[in-house]
Amino acid sequence: MNELFLNNYVIVYLFSETVLFLMALYAFFKDIVILKYWDFESFSARQLKLEKQGYLLSTIATFIFALKFILLIYFVYMIDSLSIIIPGAMCGAGVISANSYGMPLLFIKLTTIFTFLLFLTLNNLDLKAKNYPLLKLKSWVLLAALLLIFLESFFDLSYLFNIDLSVPVSCCSALFGNLEGANPLPFGLNIKNLLILYYTLYIASVLAILLENRFLTAFTLILFAIISYYAVVYFFGTYIYQLPTHKCPFCMMQKEYYYVGYLVWGSLFIGLFFGLIWVIIGFLKYKNKTAKQIAIASISLFVVLCSSYVLFYYLKNGVFL
């Protein structure tokens, strides 16, 4: 028995994921029935039953979404605390790359949360109207979200069962540091161009949302998220750690840095998710002012937070790193 499975966090995490998996399985079958037999024009008993089951599905989806959101934070926290047990790891970066399932798992988790958020927005719009105009669409979205949960469960188990405690993993400086002078940035960028791109894309995304240009918003937001990842790891992160050689997306979630990583990554992803949701429901001819406002506020918070670390470092020390 791997001693990993006696870690309190791992036990609770697996338990919660299992419960959610069972709920998702239940919802999955109900959802298929709805997709197959839904007929709003019909007055049959089955249709009435299905309408009621729609409520059950949206309740289960809300429940799963809320817990998935908490569990994502818990998962990151768990990964971080496992770094004591796993040889060589000093933060979550080493643990998550202990095998090839880790990074995809994290990505699937984010996608699942996004899909559920999309479902909940559609569900809200659907219930406001009298005749369930979005039912088929939202059921398909829910189906996708539930399938993602099944995929996630598979990756969860594969990831945790394949962590070998006898093999040392790399620490973040080995994973993200400048190795042999090779440039880790995409498109052959250097730090200066990366920052120019970062701020330009930020302004472009906000303008695109304000001008209600949906294609442009989707394009700039996704590009902004990708560039932000590199900007935080290779530039802003070094100011958070106050060390020019420390390049890591995970260490900032530790106590030493006041858990600021959760806020940094959280604000970026919330901004991205709400921006994309606004784009998608816009194509369905719905308006949602709140999603728009949250998206702008959240990415602005992200940019201000990152920049203020640089600014305060400069004000305190009079030099840049």
């Binding site: 419960v19 817990l67 569990l71 926290y77």
Partner: peptide, 19 residues
């Protein structure tokens, strides 16, 4: 960490059984 562990394990079990 311990407090959130207790909270999560209990909330998940409680709410999913009354849902």
């Amino acid at each position: 960490g311990v407090l959130s562990t207790i909270f999560i394990i209990f909330t998940v079990a409680f709410l999913s059984s009354v849902l």
